[in-house]
């Protein structure tokens, strides 16, 4: 009985966290936020273009 209660609590907590992330597309929006700094980093990396 206690195990079922714990399982239900975990599932509800999982839904409470993931459903808003899913619905409001927060995962995509977060990746968009880091795009500019990542591109800056790639642009600043030293390259040896000799072939």
């Amino acid at each position: 009985m206690k195990a079922i209660k714990i399982l239900i609590t975990i599932m509800l907590a999982f839904l409470a966290v993931t459903v808003p992330i899913y619905w409001f597309n927060l995962d995509t929006k977060l990746v968009k936020l880091i795009e500019k700094p990542m591109m800056k980093r790639y642009d600043s990396m030293p390259r040896d273009n000799r072939l």
């Binding site: 993931t18 459903v19 619905w23 597309n25």
Partner: peptide, 27 residues
Amino acid sequence: KTAIQKHREWRGGLDTAYDYMQWCRLW
């Protein structure tokens, strides 16, 4: 410009729930 969805698509109850579960599976 970025065409990022303001919120994910509403596809009716069943299909949206299915899409959510597959999104969880992807993550």
